[in-house]
Design a protein around this nucleic acid. Structure first.
Length: 533
RNA sequence: GGCGGCAUAGCCAAGAGGCUAAGGCGACGGUCUGCAAAACCGUUAUCCCCGGUUCGAGUCCGGGUGCCGCCUCCA
């Protein structure tokens, strides 16, 4: 027994209680997680990616800790926006939804997200949804009006407990911003079932042809796949009200006050240039746009540099394609560079956007992959020691510190920070064996590589082959900057020759020339390799 | 107007009362190098303001100030 080393329990912040609590699951050793997935009417934006990444890391970590996890993430394939978009495009709604669900899967796979264990779609749960609505009607919690069914908010006493709102106050504000439907008993009542309008997809129901309201699907699908009660419910902060509040009203209304999600987990927003992401403001980026410019894993890492409950700001720099001057907001909109007068197309500007914060993560990731590559190369060639020897301090402490941060409400920011010292120590050991016992050096690097593997599985980062990833990174950057890599290779070769002839002046001139292209050369005894400065 | 959140170094960001306030980026100094780069080492903060609780507060309470989010589809 070693009490001092006993790990802390996993702490998880619950929105309902507004504080961190020890995670106690319904069934010991098992966890059921439901995540509100995307409404598939277009390519997903980075906010969607973050909302899916948060439970992904949770699932990975809980599995690492020995839990048997059942992870359910739905796809909303029936919705007003999908219908509107399908009518614009002249494509059947479900077909459009199916197409963007495929695109979503591609984005999530690019970001190394594990597929959920179950990915229910609304269209496959009509029977369950109708049964749920019927039971709410039977309990007096819902009423039908002309083919619609509404939830009777006033009849559910706990309404507002998740979002900390009071019925009276909400009633005062109601109607000022939303048009009130006169058929509803109260402006706060929300639709469980909507009667079909002409041209809309619809399903038969006891109230006539129609389709489910937005909130009922999650109540229905979560209980179908996880039971009336389950452990963790995730989603973006903005879903707290009304979506999750309504889910509680529906699920607890139907199944009892002591049912439904035991923990509510909500992730913070992503901002671009300090403003909430919004299409109308033009500071909106899809996941695809970013993963076309940068390695997807760099985006994944960047999203993990901040605690999931905090907001995350993407700094955005838009350089003028002609002179490189940074364009301010008005210049971005007009496309006219104030410095050189160059006129740019919006699309051209978007292809050249830079995200300094993301680039920092990208560079950090490159450092980690380089370290891993060297460590593996060393372990592949060095002789395995025959004797035991102590592992150096920082490396020995890495994994416990990492896991401790993860236990503390999935603090990926702190967890990432715990890797810094060990990384530096590993690089030190790789650079020189000076002052370190040979066996210690080998065993420390061996431990480092093994523990980084474990860290990688939990974070879903650093899992790729270092050479492949570094090559991909360099290629993407070259493409982004419009750099001719063949030309660079050529210059490097010429410089190599000058060096062999000890023509230092020529070599230095080459270095300067490469630097102008943004490229740096690294010389070693055997070779000269280049990378971006 | 109601509710909620946040305010830590030039920038980003951990830190749920108690050793010298993690870490990253940047900057500066150093080791290494033909010169560099990479890598490593070192330097770079008393935590928005005021008051309170406490032996002790960045961490708790009250009051200010400033940002932000939700209250309408939204991750």
């Amino acid at each position: 027994m070693n009490d001092a080393a006993a790990p802390s329990p996993i702490q998880l912040h619950d929105t309902l209680l507004g504080k961190k609590c020890a995670l106690e699951t319904l069934t010991p050793g098992r966890v059921g997680i439901y995540c509100c997935g995307p409404t598939v009417y277009d390519l997903t934006h980075v906010g969607n990616a973050r909302a899916a990444l948060v439970p992904d890391v949770m699932v990975r970590f809980l599995r690492h800790e020995g839990y048997e996890v059942k992870y359910v993430r739905n796809i909303t394939d029936i919705d007003d926006k999908i219908i509107a978009r399908s009518q614009e495009a002249g494509v059947p709604a479900l077909e459009l939804a199916s197409r963007f669900a495929d695109e979503y899967h591609r984005d999530m796979a690019d970001l190394n997200l594990l597929p959920p264990d179950v990915e229910p779609r609304v269209q496959d749960h009509m029977a369950e949804i109708i049964v749920l609505v019927e039971s709410l009607v039977a309990k007096g919690l819902a009423y039908a009006v002309q083919g619609d069914v509404y939830y009777r908010v006033a009849a559910f006493k706990g309404y507002g407990k998740l979002s900390k709102r009071h019925l009276e106050e909400m009633l005062e504000g109601a109607g000022s911003r939303i048009e009130v439907d006169e058929r509803k008993e109260s402006p706060l009542d929300f639709a469980l079932w909507k009667a079909a309008k002409p041209g809309e997809p619809s399903w038969e129901s006891p109230w006539g042809p129609g389709r489910p309201g937005w909130h009922i699907e999650c109540s229905s699908m979560s209980s179908t796949h996880l039971g009336d009660s389950f452990d963790i419910h995730c989603g973006g902060r903005d879903l707290v009200f009304p979506h999750h509040e309504n889910e509680i009203a529906q699920s607890q209304g139907a199944h009892g006050d002591d049912t439904f999600a035991r923990f509510w987990v909500h992730n913070g927003f992503i901002n671009f240039a300090g403003e909430k992401m919004s299409k109308s403001l033009g500071n909106f980026f899809t996941t695809r746009e970013i993963t076309t410019l940068y390695p997807p894993e760099s985006l994944r890492c960047f999203l993990l540099t901040v605690h999931y409950r905090s907001g995350l700001n993407f700094e955005v720099e838009v350089p003028c394609p002609a002179c490189g001057a940074l364009l301010d907001k008005s210049a971005q909109e007009s496309g006219v560079c104030p410095a050189c007068g160059h006129q740019s197309e919006v699309e051209e500007l978007r292809r050249r956007v830079r995200f300094p914060g993301l680039e920092e993560s990208d560079g950090r990731l490159a450092y980690i992959y380089r370290t891993l590559r060297q460590a593996r190369a060393f372990l592949g060639t060095a002789k395995q020691p025959g004797s035991e020897a102590p592992v150096t301090e920082a490396i020995a402490g890495m994994l416990p510190a990492f896991l401790e941060h993860m236990r503390n409400d999935f603090n990926t920011s702190g967890a990432l920070g715990a890797l810094s010292k060990p990384l530096a120590e590993a690089n030190g050991l790789l650079a020189s064996g000076k002052g370190v016992d040979k066996a210690s050096r080998y065993l420390s690097l061996e431990r480092f590589a093994a523990d980084m593997g474990e860290v990688a599985r939990v974070l879903g980062c650093f899992e790729q082959d270092p050479d492949t990833w570094l090559q991909q990174r360099r290629d993407m950057k070259a493409a982004r900057l419009g750099l001719d890599t063949a030309h660079v290779d050529d210059l490097v070769r010429q410089r190599r020759e000058a060096r062999s002839a000890k023509d230092w002046d020529a070599a230095d001139a080459m270095r300067a020339k490469l630097a102008e292209l943004g490229v740096g050369v690294q010389d070693s005894a055997e070779d000269s390799v280049w990378d971006f400065l």
